[in-house]
Design a protein around this nucleic acid. Structure first.
Lengths: 201, 201, 201, 201
DNA sequence: GATGAATGAGCGTTCATTCAT
DNA sequence: AATGAATGAACGCTCATTCAT
């Protein structure tokens, strides 16, 4: 019993416990040491898998990183789904957005580090880049809606999102440097602060 | 006048045209390809210097990166000197701060990329970390002064700085992704926006 | 009837459709890419068989190649049977020989490539080597008979065979390099030419 | 003093003792075990050189093999220079040709093995292929001249050369299999035999 | 009997670093 | 002081072979 009625699954399965273990291990190590500084054998070792096994599931280290990148972006998007669904007023949506980001950063600190605190330009493929863009554009839409509704101030949506998201990332980054502790309270107040960049006065 | 009349200097000079050439070349390549992805021989080649010469001036690749990191942070600080000197009112100081960052980012895009868009945790030594901290704390002081003067709103100075600086970096990063163009006007408006996170209402 | 009534055969059968499929696939791939450049899993795949199955029928890649080698040599010998049976006069026998080789080369180009245009010294076992020798010696006998009958000129039979067979292989090889086309006419004339090395003037 | 008046030699020198050692070692090992079965580290080891050094002089294993191939073909051509220069009558020229091949095969058995007893199709580049073709065509010219002069019989020059050269290679090959000893006398008589394929009756 | 996922030794190659010149 | 040829450990990756199913 392979996996239901879809018929054959002739090539490397899209999921399997080994594959998942490799992705998990890669995330841990990439978050800790960067893509470039992580040897594939170390990933295999941490995943409790032979080095060759990595290549059963991924065409190479770069593909592994791309798949992981997309998976992480997907998880991030999931955390922001409610906020980006867009229905209530912008203020409330922003609260959801910030909360979503926070949950993501707190629950998946490795994904956060991997996604937003590292340099991917060397190996990201167009599909991965598209996933990034898509998420960015969803956020832009949120701003544009708010502007139309008169609850978000005027200004380039792209720039505004870059500032808000950058602020969030900056907070996480500096807290990881040990500059301050990242309590729920800190996060919430930071959200209030960031909202000022968007709110209509 | 470093070592008086004893004749030859026992230790390599702290600066020399070769040393500078190596640092310059390293900056260019690190900015372009990351520390981890830049071979030392390539740095030497770009600097028009023998590979061995790099090791005359730096104990190794990591030390080179540390020296470069500190030099870049120093240049950044220089760009912010006026703003951080602190004398006029916070609003004006912030304008100087944002302008300083912008000048730095525009005039030294390679430093900006190297310093703020890459991952250094693997090789930064304590001295370099201290330099970072120092700059961060100068910025915190600016916030604290403003708070004392009643021109900057209450809140953890560290968090506020992290948000503001993060916003700046976010803007640069996304503009480099091609999400929008970074005109003088964009930068200035973004500064107005970011100021909202600090201003007393 | 190999092992009588003892029930199950203790050793895998010497032939089976899977075994044959593996041999066929190996021949195709070895001819195309050489023994050394052909992964066992690729053979299995082409044979529509699990990788492990190859090892049920052959002790390893080398044994597979040896069995294949012998089988190909056998087919070659089959193509030469008439010519080597030796009964008519040498001139006619030679015609049969050349024709046999040609038929073999044309009908089994993969065997020809595998057997005569590649390097086997690394893995051929003594049995395979013996098969080669046996065929060579049959050809020597043909020469010796002709010499005795006065229709083939004097000279070391081994050397003469080496020259004639080498000429044949040379023709095939260069035609595969695209130096000329290998028509029936070309082959026949080449046979006439090669015969000159043997004929009594 | 680099090498005379040609000026700079900015990139890896075309010759150096290490480079030569690598080529020599590669020839020995390729002759013995085939290109495909020879690990680069083994070449380096035999050349008494670090593995990385191979890559200072050659872009990769394939380039090394191509350079070696061309060098060997060059040496072979050198051995045939006189014969292919073409001046005397074809009979005499053929004697020179056969003698040249023999000298080559006897003095450079490793080159002979590498060049003519192995499979290169996988990695030969167009330049190397051109070198092969050039030599083949020079031999064709020899045949054509002889035909024009009426000392070589009619027939496709390409096919005739393929047969003659194939015969030579066949002789070498079988002698290496131990089927007979390769004495000067054997070689000379074989030459007489092979000449029959060309001579005008 | 048959499978193919899994393994890990070993490949071709790179690069931080050294050292004879 | 400066060089750059040389090194070899370590990388990403392949593949002959095994073995749980």
């Amino acid at each position: 019993m392979r996996s239901g009625a879809q018929g054959q699954a002739l090539r490397p399965p899209v999921s399997s416990s080994k594959r998942d273990a490799v992705l998990r291990a890669a995330l841990e190590l990439f978050a800790e040491r960067t893509f470039g500084a992580t040897p594939v054998p170390d990933i295999a070792c941490r995943a409790q898998v032979g080095a060759g096994t990595v290549y059963r599931y991924f065409a190479g280290k770069e593909e592994l990183a791309n798949v992981l990148f997309r998976q992480c972006k997907g998880t991030m998007r999931e955390a922001l789904r409610e906020a980006l669904a867009g229905s209530t007023d912008a203020r409330e949506q922003f609260r959801l957005l910030w909360r979503g980001l926070s949950r993501f950063a707190v629950e998946q600190p490795q994904m956060m580090r991997f996604l937003e605190m590292q340099h991917h330009d060397d190996y990201l493929d167009s599909k991965s880049r598209a996933v990034s863009t898509e998420l960015f554009e969803a956020a832009e839409r949120f701003v544009r809606e708010g502007q139309r509704a008169g609850t978000i101030r005027a200004g380039s949506p792209g720039v505004l999102i870059a500032l808000v998201f950058g602020a969030f990332v900056g907070m996480i980054k500096e807290s990881e440097q040990g500059r301050f502790e990242l309590t729920a309270r800190t996060i919430e107040q930071a959200g209030e602060t960031a909202w000022r960049m968007l709110e209509m006065l």
